[in-house]
């Protein structure tokens, strides 16, 4: 997956560009751009995690912590210290990077399930801090009054404006990630995934490469958290709990783990399934959700992006 083809990117860009315009004209999906804002925020996170999991082969069950660090940095610094929201996003990212390096350095030496548990534990601990330090965070009830975003007097105060803001950030992250994949670091990552021993023999600094990717994904999650906070104007700890870390992994599995497109498709699909489509099933929603996930693992192990390939295979036969 070294070459990223241009055509799907063009299709994706046009789709994103036109979607609000189409949705406005169809009453039944009028509110979909609102869902797409959250899908975009999730997408930002899964792009980073797909790099970490799909390319570098490192599992993380604690990424909601970075999402929360960004959100709370924005929330606390804007409401209690009246800082500029954009500056807060930068400070949040810096904090997330620092935490990622401090936690990542010892954790990423761990293997497989041990790494999974370590990141899980890290996520839970950070969530407990969000919950317990009520003077800063507002405790379990959360904090409100977080201002919206504006730039040079232009305010992102409607759903459509925020939609474009979020998806522009996603596009930037997407292209940056592709550059990273195609860079020597990206090649080093794939080598690590294939075999750490071989990569090490080739002279790749394994632990440095892993920490770089971990920090990169943490920054994306932190920016996503800030965007969430400024859109919702409210945050509480349950948004950033372990369950959400697991949901991020589910999004990537739904879309497909081995390509960055999987992250995009997975997070958009997940947002629509969980915010809209599964509600049709009422009481049975949770069972249907589990069954859908089960079907994907059984019939589409490469995720939804593998579906067209599978269909093509069938047809050719």
């Amino acid at each position: 997956m070294l070459r990223i083809r241009k055509a799907p990117m063009g299709v994706g860009a046009i789709f994103i560009l036109l979607f609000p315009w189409v949705a406005e004209r169809l009453p039944a999906i009028e509110h979909y751009p609102d869902l797409m804002v959250f899908a975009g925020i999730y997408c930002l996170m899964t792009i980073g995690m797909s790099l970490l999991m799909g390319y570098a082969g490192q599992i993380s069950l604690g990424h909601a912590a970075f999402y929360g660090i960004g959100a709370y940095a924005s929330g606390i610094l804007t409401t209690q210290y009246n800082l500029n929201p954009w500056l807060c996003i930068l400070i949040g990212s810096a904090a997330a990077t620092a935490v990622a390096v401090v936690v990542g350095a010892p954790s990423l030496r761990l293997r497989g399930h041990y790494l999974a548990m370590a990141t899980l534990a890290f996520g839970i601990i950070i969530n407990i801090v969000f919950r317990e330090e009520a003077e800063w965070t507002g405790g379990p009830d959360g904090m409100g009054g977080i201002p919206g975003l504006d730039i040079f007097g232009y305010s992102f105060d409607s759903i459509h404006k925020y939609y474009y803001l979020v998806w522009i950030v996603v596009a930037i992250a997407f292209f940056f990630t592709i550059r990273l994949i195609q860079s020597p670091t990206g090649r080093a990552l794939r080598a690590i995934h294939a075999s750490e021993a071989a990569a090490s023999a080739m002279g790749i600094d394994i632990s440095r490469s892993k920490i770089v990717v971990f920090a990169f994904s943490a920054i994306l999650a932190s920016v996503a958290g800030s965007l969430y906070a400024h859109y919702m104007n409210f945050i509480n700890p349950s948004t950033f709990d372990t369950l959400f870390s697991i949901k991020l992994v589910i999004m990537i599995a739904l879309g497909g783990m081995h390509t960055i497109w999987g992250a995009v498709v997975g997070s958009v699909l997940f947002a629509f399934l969980s915010f809209e489509w599964l509600h049709q099933f009422g009481e049975y929603e949770i069972v249907v959700y589990g069954l859908v996930l089960m079907m994907v693992t059984i019939y589409l192990p490469e995720g939804l992006v593998g579906l067209p390939g599978r269909i093509a295979q069938r047809v050719r036969r």
């Binding site: 083809r5 055509a7 799907p8 299709v11 994706g12 789709f15 979607f19 189409v22 169809l26 009453p27 039944a28 999906i29 979909y32 497109w261 498709v265 958009v268 699909l269 629509f272 809209e276 489509w277 509600h279 049709q280 939804l304 992006v305 579906l307 067209p308 390939g309 093509a312």
Partner: peptide, 22 residues
């Protein structure tokens, strides 16, 4: 080609997955 169809599929799902109006 694969990616293109994936996006098309996604677009289809997004647009046609709407609920029935009460």
């Amino acid at each position: 080609m694969v990616k293109k169809s994936a996006m098309a599929l996604l677009a289809g799902l997004v647009i046609f997955g709407f609920s029935i109006q009460p």
